[in-house]
Design a protein around this nucleic acid. Sequence first.
DNA 1: GTGAAAGCGCTAACAT
DNA 2: ATGTTAGCGCTTTCAC
Lengths: 364, 364
Amino acid sequence: MSGPRRPPRGQAHPTIHDVARAAGVSKSTVSNVIRDAERVAPGTRTRVLEAIVAVGYRPNVVARSLVRRRTATVGIVVGDLANPIYGELAKLTEQHLSEAGLATMICNTDGHAESEHARLEMLLEHRVAGILMLQFSGDPGTLRELRAQGVAVAIVSCWEEGADCVAIDERAGAALAVSHLLRLGHRRIGYVSSGLVEPKTDAARFAGYEGALEAAGIGREAELVQRLEHPAYLRSDGNMHAEIEWALQLDTPPTAFFASNDLVAVDLIETIEELGLSVPHDVSVVGFDDIAMAGLARVSLTTVAQPRDELARLGTEILLERIERGERAPLRRELLPPALVVRGSTAAPPLRRQRHVAHRLPRA
Amino acid sequence: MSGPRRPPRGQAHPTIHDVARAAGVSKSTVSNVIRDAERVAPGTRTRVLEAIVAVGYRPNVVARSLVRRRTATVGIVVGDLANPIYGELAKLTEQHLSEAGLATMICNTDGHAESEHARLEMLLEHRVAGILMLQFSGDPGTLRELRAQGVAVAIVSCWEEGADCVAIDERAGAALAVSHLLRLGHRRIGYVSSGLVEPKTDAARFAGYEGALEAAGIGREAELVQRLEHPAYLRSDGNMHAEIEWALQLDTPPTAFFASNDLVAVDLIETIEELGLSVPHDVSVVGFDDIAMAGLARVSLTTVAQPRDELARLGTEILLERIERGERAPLRRELLPPALVVRGSTAAPPLRRQRHVAHRLPRA
DNA sequence: GTGAAAGCGCTAACAT
DNA sequence: ATGTTAGCGCTTTCAC
């Protein structure tokens, strides 16, 4: 009777079997009361319930997931959790998911495509029920693979073709920002972006910038466009200095900048002021996102607001719906309207500088 | 031959069994090459490897976790992901864990004990290998239960008795901040905290505040201590206004404040300036954490720095060690030294106000 | 070096 | 209303 080798059940958790024994019923009955499925006689139910607390039983989600062949976990992929807007979005999302009974796995990609790929691979091995992308490198192969695996995917804050997604109209938002500057009288308007802004998003915001300029009859000027390679994050690199100094010393320097997100905008203001100019007196700056910091009187950044609550709520809703209904459900794509928040970082261009520019133009 | 009911394997993932068949070997052999365990003949190995890509196999972590009776997932519990310091900590931590081959589940508690409890319950049901607490309500029962369940636990940035933890010396840090104010000549120094600061942390910082005052021969004054009930987060509530206005209209108002974290400090500066006073000219403010924003010229907050990299690195290291070695390993408790970063939010108290105070004192 | 077999803890038919 | 049974996809002895 040397029964089968039994791995040492040292500090093991009690199982449904232990509960069954303690309550004098079968495993299925225990399972039934736990899942609250099938009718269970009131008396039996109480005995089981008591047994559960008696033995200190806690359901094993891993086992349940295996047999059900689906987990109640979703992954959220984010570019930079240290960026307050993503921190907020992640927080709201986790809250909604938790309310829906889902656990959340989080993955920070730092904007690297390889890192994104590795994290997604991990999520797939974990058989997550869905993936919420708060950042997406934009690789179409990735999206195809995800679909092939049958995971639900929803993309938030990034308008991607052929996928469920919710985002604001980035292009329109950027145009709003630039139009505001044009209305103030600016004619030389720079565009500054950083590597931490997803390529797709950057492209859309840039398109809005260009479109607004074109509509105003202003041609594009390559020298006014700066795409900083390294992610600029609150001066952590500081490589912005040289580029901006260079731009401001052009014969006809920009009198305003549109930054592709608030973090870049804040860095930009810092840089401009380090160079001895003042915002908005000498140079105006508009950002994108409306992170909390932008509203501080000390910062007072004019920016395009992203409705985080809506993004998080809709993003979760769409993902849950896709998880629920599978591929059958039609694509859901929600494009939210952007809103410009005018604060103190924008003003009319300085008169002196404009005259200065006028003097030179005839010579050119 | 009406074989047992076979659940419709619709869009199912290929299993180890499919690979085995495709490669003409047994499941165990496939398992051996996947795990890279036991010697496998080179030829067999290649055939299996080929079969894996041929059928598009991806290991099922859920099944593996069940049979191994341990997951490779850790939970991280955080109070407020929207607070940049926690966003940064979460990001760094996830990165370290990912490098160690562990998946990360994230839980935001909003500082509510019930919410913390529910999230921990969920993590336990998921049988996570470890839990990293970036926020802890301080309930000793919770810690006991966690230990009883045999999960590894490490507490970061909160000095808790009888648990693995890493934190800076909060008390000393607060004392550093207050001593700085004393050295500048301040004698009436307020303390402002919010509900989003963990009770334990708040208590430690307050103790440092009180200790420094006592050491300078200044008695405690209840009217200078404000613990705002609702989490103050970048003016989202604004209930700070009334309280601070009240304090500033005392006969001998505080000339400086020590805030229990940077977010509170930033709110405080905003409030003070809304009241028509200037920081640091009329009132000085010191914060705690040194979030990125504090370094901006526009904000320029004097604050006590938390070494996030160290906290995240050590926290993960300690947790991994505990997961690895189990209860056997001795407790590891790392207390890091705090550092004061002096910026522009602190200065000597205004002379006018001091005279004003002197005039009144004799009358009292 | 490889395969057969026995589960991990649970769910879900199905039978009683 | 409750119990029996056959797995979920994998790891891990233990034979061969």
